[in-house]
């Protein structure tokens, strides 16, 4: 059979010399490599204290936007879910009741909106499909976790806050897209 690479070696069962038998030169040689790496520039960074620069169009943790009056934009039309190639999005719709006009923009809203972050591939197709400018991918990294259940993000983790301080800015990506 032809070798795939030229790195293959034929194993020879030859008798080792005295120097080889005491193993010390090999161990010291190995340690030298370890010690040399101690003084080299580190390839890892201290996340989350430190962060690497990311592209302006980075796609991370989704946000469900509210309009200027603080009403949810999402009307549970299901287009994000049908566009999602990973089938990560599920939702349940409900009808807006009288007196809830300040909460939801249209007569239908998503009472449950869940994204399975383990399934999500962050392709951004949901954002493209959305006719109501409700869902956006932001530059926030999805935090790690120990339990699979914690990766199903509901509305508590997706909808942005009403107060101006709690709003999530998505204009950076939009601007970056425009310059490309």
């Amino acid at each position: 059979m032809q070798a795939l690479t030229n790195r293959s070696m034929v194993v020879v069962n030859k008798k080792m010399t005295w120097m080889e038998r005491i193993y010390l030169p090999a161990i010291i040689g190995g340690l030298m490599i370890t010690i040399r790496h101690l003084f080299k520039k580190k390839v890892t960074i201290q996340y989350p204290e430190q962060e690497r620069p990311r592209s302006a169009v980075y796609r991370g943790w989704h946000v469900l936007k509210r309009d200027e009056q603080g009403r949810e934009n999402c009307t549970a039309c299901g287009l994000c879910a049908v566009a999602c190639p990973a089938e990560a999005i599920t939702m349940t719709a409900a009808e807006r009741k009288p007196g809830e006009e300040h909460l939801y923009r249209e007569e239908k809203y998503a009472s449950v909106y869940e994204i399975n972050m383990l399934r999500c591939i962050f392709c951004g197709l949901c954002e493209e499909a959305c006719p109501k400018e409700a869902i956006f991918l932001t530059d926030r990294i999805v935090p790690s976790g120990m339990l699979r259940e914690n990766f199903i993000f509901g509305k508590d983790k997706l909808v942005e806050g009403v107060e101006p301080d709690n709003r999530i800015d998505v204009s950076k990506r939009a601007r970056a897209h425009r310059t490309y």
Binding site: G78, A81, V82, A93, E95
Partner: peptide, 9 residues
């Protein structure tokens, strides 16, 4: 059927 589901689901 009002708002129960979308037809394509």
């Amino acid at each position: 059927f009002r708002f129960k589901s979308r037809v394509w689901f």
